[in-house]
Design a binder for these strands. Sequence first.
DNA 1: CGACTAATGTACTGGACAGTACATTAACTT
DNA 2: AAGTTAATGTACTGTCCAGTACATTAGTCG
Lengths: 218, 218
Amino acid sequence: MLVTTSAAPSERPERQRDAERTRAELLAVATRVFAEDGYSGARVDEIAEQTRTTKRMIYYYFGGKEQLYLSVLDHAYRGIRQAEQALDVGHLDPVEAVRRLAELTYDHHVSHPEFIRLVSIENIHRGEFIKRLDGLRTSAAPAVTVLDDVLARGRAAGEFREDVDALDVHLVISSYCVFQVANRHTFGFLFGRDLGAPENRDHLRTMIGDVVVGWLTG
Amino acid sequence: MLVTTSAAPSERPERQRDAERTRAELLAVATRVFAEDGYSGARVDEIAEQTRTTKRMIYYYFGGKEQLYLSVLDHAYRGIRQAEQALDVGHLDPVEAVRRLAELTYDHHVSHPEFIRLVSIENIHRGEFIKRLDGLRTSAAPAVTVLDDVLARGRAAGEFREDVDALDVHLVISSYCVFQVANRHTFGFLFGRDLGAPENRDHLRTMIGDVVVGWLTG
DNA sequence: CGACTAATGTACTGGACAGTACATTAACTT
DNA sequence: AAGTTAATGTACTGTCCAGTACATTAGTCG
């Protein structure tokens, strides 16, 4: 018997050692744990425990807790950028396009709470880590580019007010959608409305569309 | 000589020991440090260092780090509630009243970043601490009560849409204003617009007014 | 096969940090 | 003035935790 473990031999023979997989697994688990507990709250030992490897590997592949967190941040933001590039509202008329963008952003945020938590955590730390990720700064967020196009069309058609730019709209939409996830707990406790409850989704999604359209066409 | 220290005798003789002052000082410093570093990041020793007393007193007056943090949260929220009660827009017509409320909220948030940081921190912890402060839940936020009145007037005058309640409006305004402060760092880094810069204040303040009025009257 | 290196595991260390034991002093009471 | 208690200070402890020294094994290449 050459194969000792797996019953179903894969194309490449089952490896007991796989640098890429170990690295990727550490990154995935670290993302979860950092999002869960924050930077100070996260424990290197806890991250290691949830993988099939040991703490030693964090230092081998990343260098330390801090560099691991930096990798997590970088990876998370790149993932979001990629998702944003899939946004396509070119076929809709401007008013419907901004409504759709707002609603898609809402859905996207609601389904990626882990990312929002990382953003919050990073802001608690005054962005001291993200500022070191030069790679993220260079490329503007795709979401803003898309908005820019829609706004230009809307203004040209005389449907939108003129004193609002893409970043303004992005700010309003982001604020709303991030808040849904980031402040769910205090808001829910203080006002008795659970922003995460499925039965509130439709109302909350429609609302941001109404807000943006009402504002731009007001 | 009966008075050993002070040169200027006050009405009540200068006390070397003053429970109230010690407690208050600890609370004030703790508020700053917790807001600065988060719950896990804050150090009991650091808090004590910044007062004229010692760590020992934290345990004497509050019981421990956790109870100190609870007191900080409670105190901060009560302060905000009190500030909200000063809101008075009864003399304005509904449209101007909501605009004013939105802009006042903006100013208030921008000038209380420490509070916003505490809220963010609490949400990172999934509200596990604030949920234990029963006293906060009971009284609804004054801001919502005020909004409720203005909306009623606006709907009666046929100026506002009917499908929006006070909490909806509060959510939209809060989202925007909290985001300004809470996500300043990542937003500024990623999009190159500093939400905290004084030269952006007027634009950002006006914008939330426009958003809410446009939405409600759309 | 044997040598070499990349990858992994184990067991430990040094410092940080929340919390405490114990002593002491200031103010109040009678 | 003496006794009592509230308030405060000092010095310590036990634990947690990021990081590391050192050993070992798996895969690769000649």
